[in-house]
């Protein structure tokens, strides 16, 4: 068991290397790792993070000594998640003949260290990659998934339907077969108003979130129909509801755009109150005043509005629904 005080003093110049785990390691190990000459070289510096403490000294040294790191094509693989692998496996992965095939070259990124050699081999040897429609999925995101999931996903009969083929994008690998099936089988996709949402961005969401959002009452109101874009899957439901409620409170609901939903509701309301206090119209030329959708940098530089100051200075009395 490492002595916490000694380890802390060894790490005094390396605060980013401190974590609970390091205190379970021997002082000698910590000292040996920090003394390795490789940390002088720029290419190895990204490897010196707290994940290193999960490895052992011999493996760390063998990995750093590998001649492969002299080749430029492997240097982007030098990231700290490599410490989840041992030297023998790292070597086997780098020596795989599949990297010579053009279609697999984009997969050789540092994300690969999340997978083991056998898994990588099985994935690369899948016959499905001979089908051109699946080759677009060959990006390093694939290492977020595993062989069994990948096989099950590619086997799905839905990919034969034309309406689902645009959804065959690498974001798919963030999801799993069961979730993908549930999403594609949702009856909501039969409604015309929701079909525009059937884009690859849905794979970053889970089934429950998608269902909750498609069933918000706003989509039955033609005033809000233009907000039905895939952005609604990205923003938390709470934000969507709050921003629409704020717009309704000030009578500007017919003018908000999809980018309005991305605003922090506190900042959105503070901006509205600021404009009202300064007698600046909320609507200009039948459009929402651009200040209300402006990015923070533009607010500061062009309009001299600092959102942080507005938050501090705000004298809006929310509970009474009025402002001073």
């Amino acid at each position: 068991m490492g002595d916490k005080r000694i380890i802390d003093s060894l790490l005094k110049d390396y605060p980013n290397l401190k974590c609970n785990y390091v205190y379970r390691r021997e002082v000698l190990f910590v000292s040996q790792v920090l003394s390795l000459k490789y940390w002088q070289y720029e290419k190895f510096k990204p490897l010196l993070t707290s994940t290193i403490w999960k490895s052992n000294y011999n493996e760390i040294k063998k990995i750093l000594e590998m001649k492969e790191w002299e080749e430029e094509k492997f240097q982007n693989l030098l990231t700290s998640n490599i410490w989840g692998r041992n030297c023998e496996e790292v070597k086997k992965i780098l020596e795989m003949k599949k990297w010579q095939e053009k279609k697999f070259q984009a997969l050789l990124t540092s994300s690969i260290w999340s997978c083991n050699y056998n898994e990588i081999k099985k994935i690369l040897e899948m016959k499905e990659w001979e089908d051109k429609k699946f080759q677009v999925l060959l990006t390093s995101n694939i290492w977020n998934s595993n062989y069994r999931e990948i096989k099950n996903i590619l086997k799905m009969k839905e990919w034969k339907e034309e309406k689902f083929q645009p959804l065959l994008t690498p974001n798919l690998w963030s999801s799993n077969c069961q979730e993908i099936k549930k999403i594609l089988e949702m009856k909501e996709w039969k409604e015309e108003k929701f079909q525009v949402l059937l884009t690859s961005s849905i794979w970053s969401c889970n089934y429950e979130d998608i269902r909750e959002k498609l069933n918000l009452p706003y989509w039955n109101n033609s005033l809000y129909r233009h907000l039905l874009t895939p952005t609604i899957f990205v923003i938390k439901t709470d934000y969507i509801i709050k921003n629409i409620e704020i717009a309704e409170k000030y009578g500007i609901e017919g003018f908000i755009k999809i980018c309005t939903l991305r605003k922090n509701p506190i900042d959105f309301e503070n901006l509205i109150v600021y404009l009202l206090k300064n007698r600046i119209p909320l609507i200009l030329d039948n459009k929402l005043n651009p200040i209300l959708n402006a990015l923070t940098l533009r607010l500061k530089k062009i309009y001299q509005i600092d959102l942080k100051s507005l938050r501090k200075e705000n004298t809006y009395v929310r509970s009474r629904g009025c402002f001073k």
Binding site: N76, S111, N141, S204, K236, L297, R298
Partner: peptide, 30 residues
């Protein structure tokens, strides 16, 4: 608070890094 957790978890670090470098090269100052 703003983005769905699943969105944040889905961001691939390497992909993000490449895009950030591209944005800097394009002199995007925001």
């Amino acid at each position: 608070n703003k983005f769905e957790t699943s969105i944040l978890k889905s961001i691939d670090k390497e992909n993000m890094k490449k895009i950030l470098i591209f944005l800097k090269e394009q002199q995007v100052d925001y």
